[in-house]
């Protein structure tokens, strides 16, 4: 009997604390699979954010640092500048990256920092109990938008990938979904591509994962996946927004 699929080596054995059906676990596994397939477990350093994934350093069998809220791209910059031959990735939620850490992510992309960002967009703050995030949908009810997010009051959801695409230093930007097996396969392909871009030193790479938060959305896991597909995807289009190699290499 040949093994087809099993928990990747780079994913720690420790059970994850995420809520049942939360897609954090899928994304963690995809990262670990890419690390295993590229055989870089001994060369990769991850940075955990503040948020539900703050414990990510317990879930990967690699060196990791835990960063202050929003500052992972700055921490990653420090690491990559000291260790240019190593692989560095940050794992950040939408509160971490698109709210308190906006300056850090924009400037890391502007500088073309050669690390990869795994950006989890679940349209809410998870760990702290479901508050509105910059990526919360208009009309979406949260702990701090109990009547539904109102654009006139709290503006429109932030499309991070498109925003960063204005910066030439961003070499690879993609947005992926996890709401069915086909999308999960595409998500892994994009993640693998972002690590290859990093390997070739072509610049900054980020993959945005449209993710679920069953608990704070008040939905069953399957319904949450459907909500991503039906509500989030129209506003957050999936696909590779930029691949520098398809544009003839980095800008001079």
């Amino acid at each position: 009997m040949k093994l087809v699929a099993k928990r990747p080596k780079a994913l720690a054995e420790k059970p994850m604390h995420y809520c049942p059906g939360c897609t954090h676990g899928i994304t963690h596994r995809l990262i670990a699979e890419v690390i295993d397939e590229m055989d870089i477990q001994e060369k990769t350093i991850g940075i955990a954010p503040v948020g539900c994934a703050v414990f990510a350093y317990d879930y990967f069998n690699i060196d990791m640092q835990q960063a202050a809220h929003g500052r992972a791209p700055a921490v990653a910059t420090g690491i990559k500048r000291v260790l240019p031959e190593n692989f560095v990735f940050t794992y950040q939620g939408d509160g971490d990256l698109a709210s308190i850490g906006t300056a850090e992510i924009v400037h890391a992309a502007m500088r073309g920092e050669k690390f990869t960002v795994v950006f989890i967009n679940n349209a809410i703050y998870g760990m702290t109990g479901g508050q509105m995030a910059p990526t919360t949908m208009v009309g979406q009810k949260t702990a701090t938008s109990p009547y539904g997010r109102e654009a006139a009051h709290a503006g429109y959801p932030m499309r991070v990938v498109e925003m960063l695409a204005t910066l030439p230093g961003a070499a690879y930007l993609a947005r992926v979904g996890l709401f069915n097996n086909r999308e999960i396969k595409k998500a892994k392909k994009a993640l693998r591509r972002s690590f290859e871009i990093q390997e070739k030193g072509l610049g900054f790479s980020l993959v945005e994962f449209l993710s679920t938060c069953p608990t704070n959305w008040g939905m069953a896991p399957l319904d949450a996946l459907k909500w991503v597909e039906e509500e989030m995807v129209p506003y957050y289009p999936l696909g590779v927004i930029r691949d520098i190699e398809e544009e003839g290499g980095p800008k001079k």
């Binding site: 921490v75 000291v82 300056a103 850090e104 400037h107």
Partner: peptide
């Protein structure tokens, strides 16, 4: 060596955090 002007002092001290943690 590496000099980097950060986007803010907040970013700078967190770059120090990463670099120090990497052994620099």
């Amino acid at each position: 060596g590496t000099f980097l002007q950060a986007e803010s002092e907040v970013a700078a001290i967190n770059m120090v955090y990463g670099a120090a943690g990497a052994g620099g």
